[in-house]
Nucleic acid binder design. Structure first.
Length: 617
RNA sequence: CGGGGCGUAGCGCAGCCUGGUAGCGCGGCAGCUUUGGGAGCUGUAGGUCGUGAGUUCGAAUCUCACCGCCCCGACCA
């Protein structure tokens, strides 16, 4: 129960009943509704602002940085309990339910079956795949009174696979795709940006089970297509990128990104073909081989006292860091490997591990570096170093006139021509791609962008089904592990992404499909009887027509109501005031376009419905 | 976990350097006036200045420790 002051009032909340809920009318009406702005729940009805709880804020709370987070708070949609933990207020919850509804409808349409798994799991389930250790740090771990170890589920591969292992026996029962919309718990290293990265958040997760990888590909494609529809229906423009599979394992995956400067993920897209990939994954080539001054000279040792980092050495030689050949010592499955990359580039360890076919890859510590190169950290170089595996980034191909460590303290070598001076060097793409690189597919140029990951689809293979015994019998009675896929959508994050992508200086601009209400009726003066009566009547009519209406009946100054209206950003705003009424008209304004129309009160219902239709999903 | 910043009334902030018992704007409440883009006047309520310890006659202010929050990084299904 919401604690209320004795008067039953609290920050803009009025007329709450003893259960802390707004008073509901008797006997819900049941209506068929198929549009977001036309209803979330059966039995909805026109809502008066004075009876709702929409605590808008004039100013942004200081701990909100990005527009969507500020607007969620200012529009009275969410409130913070603690870092990464938020309460959804009525307006925010309505929008969230709309996203959920779209997700649910599209998952159902795609043939997925909704279930609901526990959020609380016994540790043993996670031990069975070894992921207790993998995910140890992100899982919230608790004990019950019997001292049994439990975790709050960060994801559900183990749980669903265990279910399938018990319930699915025959190829006749496949394919199956189970999904749920449920709260996930992750002990994020750094929660941030409101709902964007929270410790507790709502996720739609789906898991497909198929007889073989061809069938699994079909399931994957079905989910991929469903995701395209889901995000389109949410009014989002998404970019689909190739992604790394990370701790999930599996063979391939795609992420659905909402492009935004505040996005946490970097990605590149080609300006010539349709290649796009997460930076963790992106392949790229250099546009041209690099040759520098002194390219013709012989390798020469130079004293570089105290110059250890790339920046220091570049400064010493008064040259570009790109001219340096950065030499790093890694241990690949325990064996030392020298890795060469351009001085202005960072090693992508995911790519490197793949290139080396190493299952464990760590940087050598200072002692090992000294042991291997014969020099302290900062002076490693490939020239003359034998007996070790050497791998260079392919962007170093044709590098001439480079500068690198001499494997002696305080010394570097110049005029390095890798082909000449380091014979037999192997090349691979092992650095992070970046904007301006060449596209590995078509040779076009990659553009670097940032995005919010709202969806992620994976082909998982048989990793989990084998470990958890999710086998089925084929026609010949032979046992096979089911081939799996998994598919996630960050529901709460998607909601925030909608706002991040659709707002202006005045507030949110809701796509109709997600908007908490379809129409706001703004009665300019609550004192003016004719206005308020007309507002109520029109609200009732719209309600009857299946449109969710918020009636701003507050006794506030017009400016306050207009500002709040823009802030909460419902798709259509109907203004009813004495002045326009004197001319026999009311005003209808589309939030997204600013388009304004006037019509007579008699024609209002029809006009509004028409405008919603024209601007609907 | 490393680096940086911030914690003073519901929200946004000043005061802190140079110690003397807390202030501004918005918001709340009451009244009057006002009513088409965040009104005006009057009155009023509201703060153990994040917590704890220390220095001092005296601490929001100085010192130390802790807690919380935000940003950057590492990490990320």
């Amino acid at each position: 129960m919401i604690p209320l002051s004795r008067s039953g009032k609290e920050v803009g909340c009025r007329r709450m009943d003893e259960h802390g809920a707004t008073v509901m009318p008797l006997g819900p009406r049941f209506k068929r509704r198929d549009r977001g702005c036309r209803g979330v729940r059966e039995g909805d009805r026109m809502v008066r602002w004075t009876e709702q709880c929409i605590p808008t804020l004039r100013e942004s709370p200081q701990d909100a940085e990005i527009p969507s987070h500020q607007l969620l708070l200012r529009a009275g949609m969410i409130r913070k309990l603690a870092g990464g933990l938020y309460t959804f207020l009525p307006l925010g919850l309505r929008a969230l339910r709309n996203v959920e509804r779209i997700v649910r409808e599209e998952m159902d349409r795609a043939g997925a079956l909704e279930i609901l798994m526990p959020a609380l799991h016994p540790r043993e389930v996670w031990d069975r795949t070894g992921r207790y250790d993998v995910l140890r740090d992100v899982m919230f771990k608790i004990k019950d009174r019997q001292n049994r170890e439990l975790v709050l589920g960060p994801t559900h591969e183990e749980i669903v696979t265990d279910l399938v292992a018990r319930e699915i026996n025959s190829y006749r029962q496949l394919p199956k795709n189970f999904y749920q919309i449920q709260t996930k718990f992750r002990d994020e290293i750094r929660p941030r940006f409101g709902l964007m990265r929270a410790k507790e958040f709502i996720m739609k997760d789906a898991y497909s089970f198929d007889v073989d990888s061809d069938a699994a590909d079909k399931s994957y494609k079905a989910m991929f297509d469903a995701y395209v529809r889901i995000f389109a229906r949410c009014g989002l423009r998404t970019k689909i990128v190739e992604a790394d599979t990370g701790a999930m394992g599996g063979s391939s995956s795609h992420e659905f990104m909402v492009l935004a400067d505040s996005g946490e993920d970097g990605l590149v897209e080609c300006d010539a073909c349709d290649y796009a990939a997460n930076l963790e994954r992106a392949e790229s080539v250099s546009h041209a081989a690099r040759s520098f001054d002194g390219a013709e000279g012989a390798v020469e040792e130079v004293d570089t006292p105290g110059a250890r980092t790339i920046a220091e050495v570049a400064a010493f030689f008064k040259t570009d860091p790109a001219r340096m050949i950065k030499t790093l010592v890694y241990l690949a499955d325990g064996k030392p490997v020298l890795i060469l990359v351009p001085g202005d580039r960072d090693v992508n360890e995911i790519k490197l591990a793949r290139a080396l076919q190493a299952s464990e890859l760590v940087m050598a510590d200072d002692d090992r570096v000294k042991e291997i190169t014969g020099a302290p950290v900062g002076f490693a170089g490939p020239v003359g170093l034998t007996g070790f595996r050497l791998v260079a980034d392919e962007k170093l191909k044709g590098y001439r006139g480079g500068i690198t460590g001499a494997n002696k303290a305080d010394k570097h070598v110049i005029n390095v021509d890798l082909e000449r001076d380091v014979p037999g060097l192997a090349y691979a793409d092992i650095v992070f791609a970046r904007g301006g690189d060449g596209c590995a597919r078509c040779g076009g140029t990659l553009q670097e962008k940032r995005g919010i990951e709202v969806g992620h689809v994976f082909k998982l293979g048989t990793k989990y089904s084998e470990q958890l015994g999710a086998h089925y019998l084929d026609e010949g009675g032979k046992q096979h592990p089911a081939v799996m896929g998994c598919y996630g959508i960050g529901v709460t994050r998607t909601l925030q992404a909608v706002i991040e992508q659709s707002h202006d200086k005045d507030g949110i601009i809701w796509p109709p499909s997600v908007a908490p209400y379809g129409v706001e009726i703004l009665v300019i003066s609550a004192q003016h009887a004719e206005s308020i009566q007309l507002g109520e009547r029109l609200a009732a009519e719209l309600d009857e027509a299946g449109v969710d209406v918020l009636l701003d009946d507050r006794d506030e100054r017009p400016g306050v109501k207009f500002k709040d209206g823009d802030l909460i950003g419902l798709p259509v705003r109907v203004g009813i005031g004495e002045k326009s009424l004197a001319r026999g008209v009311i005003e209808i304004k589309i939030r997204a376009t600013g388009e304004m129309r006037e019509c007579s009160p008699e024609a209002a219902l029809e006009t509004i419905l028409e405008m919603i239709g024209a601007n609907g999903p």
